[in-house]
């Protein structure tokens, strides 16, 4: 059961299947993609109209489709946060004063409320979509390389890449321990007892990870590590990247100006 869960988990969240494909978005320079994501998210944050948000989200969906990401995978990956947002937004429908659509004794739904909730959820969804599109179409090692090229301090990039590498191992270890614990518990335990077991598992994990870290350090030293990590990877911005970024900028400008100057809402 747990190993099934682990496979599913890896498959959903850490799959590099789609980032190693070779379609339009995958081919764009990762720096350009990071920049574009930030730009699209910023526009979504600034947008005030449902229409703008719908257009932005549609564009992102089109991009994900041309990068051959299965719609199902994309939806699973992007629905978690919007669902949670929906929970938060739900009360808005009832508490916002304004035009009543529905009025049953206590329940009181207004157009303003629905609009407010909808735009909130849609905005969050657009942002998540744009971020997950970046993740799904870019190999993790390329994101790290791009960060290195963008002069993010080495300690971050080196640590992120080693951390990422060992996350799977840690999750595996943690779940194997949980499984071992499950197989040895036969009755319902008190909460305090449960926290206690968890704490002892976490401290064991801590000690193991510490020792693993020491061994990894030795392995790095054995191969000449002296505090810095070099990289062969080269990146270059070509015509395709320039065109892509111009399109993204164009979309951003259109969206912003239609909102602010033409008053589309």
């Amino acid at each position: 059961m747990i190993s099934n869960f682990l496979n599913l988990f890896e498959d959903i969240f850490f799959n590099e299947k789609y980032s190693s494909l070779n379609f339009i978005i995958q081919k764009i320079d990762p720096r350009v993609k990071i920049f574009s994501s930030i730009a699209l998210i910023s526009i979504a944050i600034l947008a005030k109209s449902i229409l703008t948000l719908i257009i932005l989200t549609s564009i992102i969906f089109i991009l994900s489709i041309v990068s051959r990401i299965p719609l199902k995978i994309f939806l699973i990956r992007t629905s978690l946060i919007p669902l949670f947002t929906t929970l938060i937004a739900l009360p808005l429908i009832f508490i916002t004063p304004g035009n009543q659509i529905l009025n049953l004794n206590f329940i009181n739904i207004t157009t303003e409320g629905v609009h407010k909730a909808l735009i909130f959820i849609l905005r969050v969804w657009t942002c998540v979509n744009s971020l997950i599109l970046l993740t799904l179409t870019t190999k993790f090692s390329n994101i790290i390389n791009a960060m290195e090229k963008l002069k993010i301090p080495k300690i971050f990039t080196v640590m992120i890449s080693i951390t990422y590498r060992f996350i799977f191992l840690s999750i595996n270890e943690a779940y194997r321990m949980l499984l071992a614990k499950e197989s040895r518990t036969f009755k319902k335990e008190s909460r305090l007892k449960e926290i206690k077991t968890l704490a002892s598992m976490l401290s064991t994990l801590f000690i193991r990870s510490y020792e693993r870290g020491e061994r990894v350090y030795l392995a790095m030293m054995a191969r000449g590590y002296n505090g810095s990590v070099n990289n062969l990877e080269k990146m270059s911005i070509n015509r395709r990247d320039v065109v892509f970024i111009l399109i993204v900028l164009f979309i951003c400008i259109i969206a912003l100006s239609s909102e602010y100057f033409l008053g589309v809402s």
Binding site: F140, S141, I162, R165, F166, R212, R215, L218, A219
Partner: peptide, 12 residues
């Protein structure tokens, strides 16, 4: 090393 997980620490 005995445990290859100690020796492979890069993303690729």
């Amino acid at each position: 090393f005995q445990d290859p997980d100690d020796q492979l620490f890069c993303p690729t």
